[in-house]
Design a binder for these strands. Structure first.
Length: 268
DNA sequence: AAGCCTTTGAAGTAG
DNA sequence: CTACTTCAAAGGCTT
């Protein structure tokens, strides 16, 4: 029963036409993640449409509106990618952002624009009034910040490598008896490069569908929405490592090597 | 408790 | 247009 569901879901997933050029071995080849870009002007059936057919629900114009005024009309896709496990050979667990806790959107009230005083509004003169104005301004800013913090964050869809990591992490942990993610990710990075183009293509394709579904569900969303929200280490710390080879990606960038094909000595 | 580490890829920003 | 930056996941470690 379960397996049947798995394979039927897989068939749905694999119903998409493969991107032109994907999985072919003509030389030279562009990087897969570039080659997999869908051609412009070629509408492709999305997972969303697949599951809504023959009664498609038009994608809402505004995410907050959808959350509050209309419950998500999409059929229960939770665990969709766990269902597609068969497709990937063995996706042992959920890999979709769709089922990620961070995306389990609550019933947040859409934030009204905070009452920000117009720049032309000048605080009344006089020390006491000025202090009072400052306090009000601060309170407004604080409440605005609180509202921002309470807003459910829509995360970025996972890219091909992230999907691969999610699938393979448990395997690597079991094999290497490691738990530290930094070390595991290094191993996974090397294994990713060792994959054949066909194997990688599966993940690029899955990632493309993730992005497509994400766009369908959150039409107004942009990666910009989450930009700068995480506190990062200071710029100085980044720059002080000029003598350090750093990650292979950074190292390749530094020495002008091909990011997709070249291995830099110090990072191997 | 918050951020770092570490990876790749997508998408943003800055010049 | 190019180069650089940030964020997705993960969990132990550090501050």
């Amino acid at each position: 029963m379960y397996k049947e569901t798995v394979y039927s879901a897989f068939n749905l997933l694999m119903h998409y036409p493969p991107p032109s050029g994907a999985g072919q071995h003509s030389q030279p080849q562009p990087p897969l993640h570039k080659a997999n870009q869908p051609p412009h002007g070629v509408p492709q059936l999305s997972l969303y449409e697949h599951f809504n057919s023959p009664h498609p629900t038009p994608a809402p114009a505004d995410i907050s509106q959808k959350q509050v005024h209309r419950p998500l009309q999409t059929p229960d896709l939770s665990g969709f990618y766990s269902l597609t496990s068969g497709s990937m050979g063995q996706l042992p667990h959920t890999v979709s952002w769709f089922t990620h806790p961070s995306l389990m959107l609550g019933s947040s009230v859409p934030g009204h624009p905070a009452a920000i005083p117009h720049p032309a509004i000048v605080p009344p003169s006089g020390k006491q009034e000025l202090q009072s104005f400052d306090r009000n301004l601060k309170t407004q800013e604080e409440s605005k910040a609180e509202k921002e913090a309470k807003k459910p964050t829509i995360k970025k869809p996972l890219n091909a490598f992230m999907l691969y990591m999610k699938e393979m992490r448990a395997k690597v942990i079991a094999e290497c008896t490691l738990k530290e993610s930094a070390a595991i990710n290094q191993i996974l990075g090397r294994r990713w490069h060792a994959l054949s183009r066909e194997e990688q293509a599966k993940y690029y394709e899955l990632a493309r569908k993730e992005r497509q579904l994400h766009m369908q569900l959150y039409p107004g969303w942009s990666a910009r929405d989450n930009y700068g929200k995480k506190k990062r280490r200071s710029r100085e710390k980044h720059q002080e490592s000029t003598t350090d080879p750093g990650s292979p990606k950074k190292c390749r960038a530094r020495f002008g090597l091909n990011q997709q094909t070249d291995w830099c000595g110090p990072c191997r």
